[in-house]
Design a protein around this nucleic acid. Structure first.
Length: 557
RNA sequence: GGCCCCGUGGUGUAGCGGUUAGCAUAAGAGACUCUGGAUCUCUUAGCGCCAGUUCGAAUCUGGCCGGGGCUGCCA
């Protein structure tokens, strides 16, 4: 199965294939997704989620959802809930395997005692500044702590007192005894435990010492018998330490594998910046559709399938890359095109009156729901003497390449009639209304005489249209890499026009039946979804992404 | 100055000693179309550099150049 053509062949799967061949780990494949519950998930996490859960699926293995909650100061329950929601929404199943690093605190403590007893760990009384100073620099080796050679008995006693709360925050730490002149800074007697008299979202006040990432993470993986511990590139230099702890303890040793995290153009992905954008109200909350958060993408109308497809298609490697956000949008369009129904909505309405149509007649037209899906069927859409069409679909003095409606010109109203514009009613420079006629022989959209029109436009009955607020989103930043300009704050590049609200949109009434997060296409305009702000009085619609638009290129060239 | 990682079309990836260097996307041209959408066809475009090993190198070796990371009691 693992060798099947349909699966991608990245370097991680290559390692797994080799391990399977040599029957390493009894041919088990067991991964994990280990978020810290200190923020909301974003599309970068989605890449990791798809990788870890995807690999487990492909190899008939398992993937755990594990909260790496070793720092009570930053972490909280609300994030745990949010992460669980998001991973589930993306379409992955951890079955009963939802774990917390904090559940392993007692075991970690015991392992620390093992290390102390073997002379490989010691309690250090230096403060944070001293430790930092004595660690040296990348070019200068560090200095041994004056407390480095305490007796095992003293270390045991002190460590126990640390745990019992005899010391204040920062007064002591437990350190691994490795090598203060190691060329890898991580190996210069790294801190294993710090004292934090802080309330933990799960263990409450049970602990006042908390394990550091490097000490904890390998233990978590080992305890869960993870076979392949996949993380991002910045942990490459931590791998020797990861291995060192497990080897000293002589316990199960997973293999840490590092890959390049996802970067997307025109956005930021760091938790710190995302938090700042939210807290300082540059956006409206964690689920703002302009944000690359999972919640933002959900509200924007991105489907889980399209995000999964995107993550699969960008591949996984060790080169730092910056993926064009257009590619994400391409994946979204491709998925939505095939799966989502079409409706008609006029975003910027222009009234037209059909002179040769009965005043009171409202006739139902048969309109195709989705030309990409033969099973989607048709629906009835009311047609009447007065209609709204899109302002963009009319030009009084058409430019050369424009072939929509213009005075004297004929176009087709989708699934309705051929329409000809006769007069333009203006107030000053502004076009207020068009008077038109239809060819009654073209009902349904085709002419029996076989004549063609250049263009087909959408429409909504004036009497039957419903009003809606439509929110249009543009990229949040004005440059591809907002964090890449040295000396400049990423906030300097925030796009002040990233949100446009259209309040006077005229929508086909069937859209009012849709529920929040339902996705659809407004014919010829783009993909949209119902915003959760929708209520009985107000219909709110988000633009997910525009359709590809050749005309705008022609127009602007 | 130390240590670690990485260099294949514009972008993202495949390649595992012999391939017309594949795929996707972007760009350009055309066909088709009741969405200037979708679909289809074609075109442009790539192995960082220099040596070495070999009958043969994107692939193996060395050097160079370029990019990224590492000096939290964060993860």
């Amino acid at each position: 199965m693992a060798n099947d053509e349909k699966y991608s062949h990245d370097f991680i799967r290559e390692i797994i294939n080799k391990d399977l061949k040599t029957k390493k780990n009894d041919s088990r494949v067991h991964t994990r997704f280990p978020p810290e519950p200190n923020g909301h998930l974003h599309v970068g996490h989605a890449k990791s989620i798809c990788l870890n859960f995807g690999i487990a699926e492909e190899y008939n293995g398992k993937c755990n959802l594990r909260f790496d909650d070793t720092n009570p100061i930053k972490e909280g329950d609300e994030y745990v809930k949010s992460i669980i929601d998001d991973v589930g929404w993306l379409g992955f199943d951890w079955e009963d395997r939802i774990y917390y690093a904090s559940d392993y605190f007692p075991q970690m403590y015991n392992y620390a005692i093992v290390l102390i007893k073997s002379g490989k760990a010691y309690v250090d009384d230096q403060n944070a500044n001293e430790i930092s100073y004595n660690r040296g620099t990348v070019n200068k080796s560090g200095k041994n702590s004056p407390y480095r050679d305490r007796s095992i008995e003293e270390n045991l006693e002190l460590f126990e007192l640390m745990k019992k709360g005899y010391f204040k925050d920062g007064e002591k730490v437990l350190r691994a005894k490795i090598d203060m002149s190691h060329p890898n800074m991580n190996m210069r007697d790294p801190v294993m435990y710090r004292i934090l008299h802080a309330y933990h979202h799960r263990t409450k006040d049970e602990w006042c010492i908390y394990p550091m990432y490097d000490w904890a993470h390998g233990l978590e993986d080992s305890i869960e018998k993870i076979t392949h511990s996949i993380c991002t590139l910045e942990f490459e230099n931590h791998r020797p330490l990861y291995d060192w702890f497990l080897k000293e303890l002589k316990i199960f040793q997973p293999q840490q594998i590092e890959f390049a995290r996802l970067n997307l153009t025109y956005t930021v992905m760091s938790k710190r910046m995302l938090l700042e954008l939210v807290n300082k109200n540059y956006v409206n909350g964690w689920d703002d559709p302009r944000l690359p958060t999972i919640k933002g993408m959900k509200r924007r109308g991105y489907s889980p399938a399209s995000i999964r497809d995107f993550c699969r298609r960008i591949g996984v490697a060790k080169v730092n890359s910056n993926i064009p956000v257009d590619f994400l949008e391409h994946c979204v369009r491709e998925n939505l095109n095939k799966t989502v129904p079409r409706f008609m909505g006029v975003l910027r309405p222009l009234k037209i009156t059909i002179e040769n149509y009965p005043n009171d007649l409202i006739d139902d037209m048969n309109v195709i729901n989705n030309p990409e899906d033969a099973n989607a069927g048709i629906r009835k859409v009311p047609f009447s003497k007065s209609l709204y069409i899109e302002q963009d679909d009319f030009m009084e003095y058409p430019s050369k390449k424009f072939y929509r409606l213009a005075p004297g010109r004929e176009v087709r109203l989708v699934n309705a009639y051929f329409l000809k514009c006769n007069d333009v009613i203006k107030e000053g420079e502004i076009t207020k209304e068009l008077t038109c006629t239809i060819d009654h022989n073209t009902k349904g959209g085709n002419s029996p005489d076989g004549r063609k029109v250049k263009s087909t436009i959408h429409w909504v009955s004036l009497q039957k249209a419903i009003d809606a607020e439509v929110r249009l989103y543009d990229r949040l930043f004005t440059i591809e890499n907002p964090t890449g300009k040295k000396g400049q704050d990423y906030k300097d590049f925030i796009n002040s026009n990233s949100l446009k609200i259209l309040k006077n949109c005229k929508i086909e009434s069937a859209v009012s039946e849709l529920k929040p997060f339902d996705r659809f296409q407004f014919l010829r305009k783009g993909y949209f979804c119902i915003d959760p702000d929708k209520n009985d009085k107000k219909l709110v619609i988000n633009q997910t992404v525009e359709l590809r638009d050749k005309w705008s290129k022609i127009k602007n060239n």
